[in-house]
Design a binder for these strands. Structure first.
Lengths: 97, 97
DNA sequence: TATATATTTGACAAAACCGTCTAAATATTT
DNA sequence: AAATATTTAGACGGTTTTGTCAAATATATA
């Protein structure tokens, strides 16, 4: 599956700071080929990579995690009629705890 | 990965109505072996199956979709620090549209 | 109990997905 | 323009996931 969205986001972040893939790839412990594919949406960015990614890109971890999650939910459940209700339901559940 | 939650839910639904796997499997166009594994969490239930599933099990589609989505989000993002904020963010976005 | 029905299991091949390697393509610097 | 650095693409083997088949278990019924 080609998802692109989050990949192109981190790519634009990286480019805006003039960091070569070499550096980011090393921080994620993959090679530049894999990172390139992640940026182009041909490989998944794992949620476990968000901490290292935020660090090496010099952005706020919180913001990046939120970006990642919202993007994933948008993608996974695009067009599902009761997504809003589902989000409310899980929020209620989380607020209780 | 063994996720179980939603699988055992539809299994209990099916059993409470005394519907054999044969019927449900046919509605989903898989064989009973696959359905058995879905119920036991050894195969994924696809979101695209929810309509047929609701119909054959005689339950409300809305409720079942919500159940599916909440379960998946809980599973995918368990332990992520800013999940609540991400949910709020995507809700804002959806309410605007 | 014997028989039929339902469910689960394990083996299997097909498909999807992964990260790496190599080399080509592209961009940047000197 | 040449040299260097960066990014992308394709091929590859390895791993994971998939659905089916056939056999093994479990459950229900005559």
């Amino acid at each position: 599956m080609k998802s692109v969205e989050f990949g192109s986001y981190i790519k634009s972040l990286r480019e805006s700071k003039n960091i070569p893939q070499r550096i980011v790839a090393h921080a994620l412990d993959v090679d530049t080929s894999t990172l390139s594919k992640m940026e182009l949406g041909e490989r998944q960015v794992l949620i476990s990579m968000i901490p290292q990614l935020a660090k090496v890109l010099g952005v706020d971890f919180k913001d990046l995690q939120i970006k990642y999650i919202t993007n994933k939910i948008r993608l996974d459940f695009k067009g599902q009629k009761y997504l809003i209700e589902a989000l409310e339901s899980i929020q209620n559940e989380l607020n209780k705890k």
